[in-house]
């Protein structure tokens, strides 16, 4: 199966199942709202100090941060003004909540991932997200996610270290960035394939699903080439998408906050759909790509049945 056939089959699957993108999007929206609220509250006192926030909103963020820092520096006996204290508390809590939110988001993703994978793989009349199915896959998915983060992180460190020792001179930074993005695109693809193996390949073992994904990947050079190309293409698409949409999403004029917020959320839903497309690709591979001889030998008869 070539790259374009893979993507050609996956895209309609993801398009038909587009509401599943909301399952990927909603947790991040809720968590961002929770984590951002203390920051909003912390800005209240500063809002009473005239045009400072207006300057920040129109591009002078660094300047306002500097002024806040100078206010702390100038504070007699080390006690900063009330507005700075409120901002400090609000920002601090917001950042702390962000740290917690990343963990929660990871758990929620692993909670919904099984349900999403299942829905992407079933026939059209049975399509739909099932919490029961999702809950049934939670622990295997969580283990896979945990191991996947370790593997991705280790791989990224290795990539950076290898690039660092190469005599690339001024090219070191761009080469490092490209290599890192490439690794993330491939590593993520492998883990997505492992998730699809988990749900549709008939095992509840995270490690085994990762191994099977690897076996499926190397079953033939042509197959591996197609899949790698597809992952890189999707990675490139995501980079291009955020290059185009990111700056637009970052611009939030004070006079059009609602419209900007809606545009921002639309961009994030689009990003969630790109993730859905990657998952659909993994499901497509597991369900329909021909398994090679080595793969068939390693997978015992009967293992292919879903265990729910």
């Amino acid at each position: 199966m070539n790259t374009f056939l893979l993507l050609g089959n996956s895209a309609p699957r993801a398009a038909r199942s587009w509401p599943l993108a909301l399952a990927l999007y909603v947790p991040s929206a809720i968590l961002a709202f929770i984590a951002g609220t203390p920051f909003f509250l912390g800005l209240e006192a500063l809002a009473a100090s005239g045009t400072l926030l207006a300057r920040a909103a129109t591009g002078d963020v660094v300047l306002v941060v500097l002024e806040v820092g100078l206010a702390v520096l100038a504070a007699p006996s080390g006690t900063p003004p009330a507005a700075v204290r409120a901002l400090g508390v609000g920002s601090g809590v917001s950042v702390a909540l962000l740290g917690a939110a990343v963990l929660v988001q990871g758990c929620l993703y692993n909670l919904v991932a099984g349900g999403v994978m299942h829905s992407l793989g079933v026939s059209s009349d049975a399509r739909g997200f099932s919490w029961t199915v999702a809950r049934g896959w939670f622990w295997p998915m969580l283990r896979l996610g945990f191991e996947g983060v370790l593997a991705l992180g280790t791989g990224a460190a290795v990539v950076v270290a290898v690039v660092a020792v190469l005599p690339l001179g001024a090219w070191a930074a761009p080469v490092s960035a490209v290599a890192l993005l490439g690794w993330l695109a491939l590593g993520n693809g492998w883990l997505e394939l492992a998730r699809a193996e988990l749900v549709h390949g008939g095992t509840r073992s995270a490690w085994r699903s990762i191994g099977r994904a690897g076996l499926r990947l190397v079953q033939s050079r042509a197959h591996m080439g197609s899949l790698v190309a597809a992952w890189l293409l999707l990675g490139l698409t995501a980079v291009l998408y955020w290059s185009l949409v990111g700056p637009l999403a970052a611009v939030v004029p004070a006079s059009a906050v609602l419209g900007s917020a809606l545009a921002q959320q639309a961009a994030l839903i689009g990003s969630a759909w790109l993730k859905l497309l990657r998952l659909a690709l993994a499901v497509e591979v597991v369900l329909h790509a021909p398994a090679g001889r080595r793969y068939r030998e390693r997978v015992r008869p009967g293992e292919g049945a879903a265990v729910l």
């Binding site: 991040s28 984590a35 951002g36 920051f39 926030l53 988001q105 990871g106 970052a250 004070a254 906050v257």
Partner: peptide, 28 residues
Amino acid sequence: PDAGPRLALVVRWMGLLQALLQAVGQVG
């Protein structure tokens, strides 16, 4: 106080958090 700048900053901050959560919290 004009609520616009405050909301604009918070929407920008929340958008950044959300993008980060989507990128980091959806590994594999």
